[in-house]
Simulated scan of single mutants.
Amino acid sequence: MARNKAFDETQVLDKAVELFWSKGYNCTSANDLVDTLGLSRSSLYDTYGDKHALFVKALKRYKQELGGKLIEMIEQTEDVKATIAEILQMIVEQDRTAINPKGCFMVNTAVELSGTDPEIANIVNGNRADIEKALQTAIKRGQEKGQFSSRHDPIALTRYFINTFFGLRISIKFNNDPKILKDIIEVSLSILD
């Protein structure tokens, strides 16, 4: 007869997201997992499988929760330029005052593992593709409404802003000077004029 689990799997998975996000995959040990998640090794592995399987579940959880919120924000906007500005500012504010900026779990994972792990690369690329699709639709809509210039192709603008979002996430990890970050945002938004 199977025993009921004495823990909330979703809460444990959220803790795993935070741990992997702050330490990365390779620097997270089995002891880190046991200590942070508050589970015995047997409960951890019986429920989530090995470290890699837990990491995949954590990355998918991040994609669903944070990626989903970003996509919803983009899809529901009436003012596309203002929403892009808001996203850029959110990226800055998330880590600007942190002692150890975490950046973006998805971007960190792309840098650490995408070149060596096809399963992880598929998740990272799927996340980027989902955001890109929503943003491209929004940019095209913003151009049609005259909210900003139609000088650039919507696909090219989308790729530019995806790159800016991800690049800003990396930049802020090693330089959180407000003037530099403000310059990046202002110049990025000027491309829409």
Rank of each mutant, 00 (worst) to 15 (best):
S29I: 12
L135T: 02
D35V: 10
A134H: 06
N122S: 14
T28S: 08
Q136F: 00
Q76R: 11
A138R: 06
W21Y: 14
A85S: 12
A85K: 09
K173H: 03
V56L: 15
L13K: 12
K69P: 01
T83Q: 04
F148H: 10
A98P: 00
K140N: 10
L157W: 02
A58D: 12
N175Y: 09
M1N: 14
K140R: 12
A6V: 05
F166I: 03
R41Q: 13
M90G: 11
I172M: 07
D130T: 04
D79R: 13
T164R: 03
P178V: 08
I180D: 10
N108W: 04
Q143H: 08
D35L: 12
T28C: 07
L44M: 14
S114N: 03
A134S: 14
W21T: 10
F166R: 11
Y45N: 15
L181I: 04
D153W: 03
Q136P: 01
L189Y: 02
N4V: 12
R61W: 09
L37I: 08
L113I: 06
L88W: 03
I120T: 14
F161M: 12
I191R: 06
F148T: 07
Y62R: 13
E132Q: 14
L54K: 11
Q89E: 11
Y45E: 15
N127V: 02
F105Q: 03
V107L: 06
D32G: 06
T158V: 10
T47R: 11
D79S: 05
D177N: 15
R169C: 15
N176M: 06
S190W: 11
G167Q: 10
S171F: 09
F165Y: 14
S43R: 13
D46L: 15
I139L: 14
Q136A: 05
K57G: 06
K140Q: 14
A30C: 00
G67V: 12
V124G: 07
V12I: 14
D130I: 00
A156W: 04
I84K: 02
L135Y: 02
Q89D: 11
D193S: 11
Y160E: 03
D177W: 04
T137M: 01
N127I: 00
G126C: 05
M73R: 13
T137C: 00
D79N: 13
R159M: 06
M106F: 05
A6E: 13
T116L: 06
A58W: 09
N31W: 05
R61L: 13
F165I: 08
K60I: 04
L168V: 03
D117Y: 04
E86H: 07
L39H: 12
M73F: 02
S40F: 11
